[in-house]
Amino acid sequence: MRKLLCFIIVIFTVLYTSAQSAEPIPSLMESNLKIYVVVGVLTIIFSGIIIFLLSMDRRLKKLEEGH
């Protein structure tokens, strides 16, 4: 679980820094008639729901282990 979270954070950091060095973020977001804003919104929703599910998963695990 913790390993997975670390992995996600590392991946995001790498993506973020590489996107920054390629070209400034605003121009990417404004390009192609702002379609990347929609991509960003969908990413936020997806990751939000995944984080919520992971927290539920942890709770269920505790219950299964009988604490």
């Binding site: 192609n32 008639l33 702002k34 379609i35 804003v37 929609v38 919104v41």
Partner: peptide, 10 residues
């Protein structure tokens, strides 16, 4: 708005 009009669904 351009393409971000699709955010209406999200």
């Amino acid at each position: 708005l351009f393409q971000t009009i699709r955010n209406t669904f999200f």
